[in-house]
């Protein structure tokens, strides 16, 4: 249990690993947000085909473990594409990981946004429509801003989940923090110190996200007291 030793030997690689963790989290969340928004709009669309596409996507993601998805995208999918389209096709662990995390977070964000939209008073849409705004413009200008505000806590929660889910991507060899830790403890046997430090990395970032959440909620208060 030699923290000094672990600090000296492992901090550089752990910090790099954590940087990788944060990087893939942020990139995935960025794509997931748009994916989620599109899936949510499909899901609430009048067109049945669009609704089915969204429901199929959400069903698929929710119904399979992320580890299996990661293996599938990293190893399975390239095999199929090599066979059918392009024989040299490959994905890096980072690309495959980002795809899996985006698809996952996207499915959950779609449901979060749907809940947010449903929580907006139906009178808002009626007011916007009665002013002559089209359905899509009303959605964009009136409903979505309110739905997003309502969804902030759940969206931050999903960001935290995605951050933690990156550790699963270590299974396909992405050199994020858990992967780096495994390598280091294999050599040094410093389990306690190493994993304590890792936990602190995660905690620090999650705390940051929580602050961001309350800051955003306050910023978007629109004259609400307190």
């Amino acid at each position: 249990m030699n923290f000094t030793r672990v600090f000296q030997e492992a901090i550089p690689s752990l910090a790099w690993g954590f940087l990788m963790t944060v990087e893939i989290t942020l990139i995935s969340l960025f794509f997931a947000f748009f994916l989620g928004l599109i899936a949510c709009l499909f899901n609430t669309s009048k067109k049945r085909a669009l609704r089915y596409i969204a429901k199929f996507y959400i069903w698929l993601v929710r119904g399979t473990p992320m580890l299996v998805q990661a293996m599938f995208i990293y190893l399975g999918l390239p095999q199929l594409i090599q066979l059918l389209i392009y024989p040299d096709f490959r994905l890096t662990a980072f690309q495959a990981g980002a795809i899996v995390l985006s698809l996952n977070a996207g499915a959950y964000i779609a449901e979060i946004l749907r809940g947010g939209i449903q929580a907006v008073d139906p009178g808002q849409m009626e007011a916007a429509r009665s002013l002559g705004m089209s359905k899509s413009r009303s959605m964009y200008k009136v409903i979505l801003p309110q739905a997003l505000r309502i969804s902030i806590p759940s969206l931050v929660n999903q960001s935290i989940i995605t951050l933690k889910d990156t550790s699963i991507i270590s299974a396909i060899g992405l050199a994020e923090i858990v992967y780096q830790a495994k390598i280091y403890v294999g050599k040094s046997m410093e389990f306690f110190a190493t994993y304590t430090i890792i936990a602190l990395f995660y905690l620090a970032f999650v705390t940051l996200l929580t602050w961001l959440s309350s800051y955003l909620e306050k910023r978007l208060n629109y004259g609400r007291k307190g």
Binding site: G123, E126, A128, R129, S130, L131, G132, S134, Q146
Partner: peptide, 21 residues
Amino acid sequence: IDKIRQNIGMVFQQFNLFPHL
């Protein structure tokens, strides 16, 4: 319908102002 509605104002019992604006 959107075009016509621009010409018909409506006022609701619950006001329905946009709270974020």
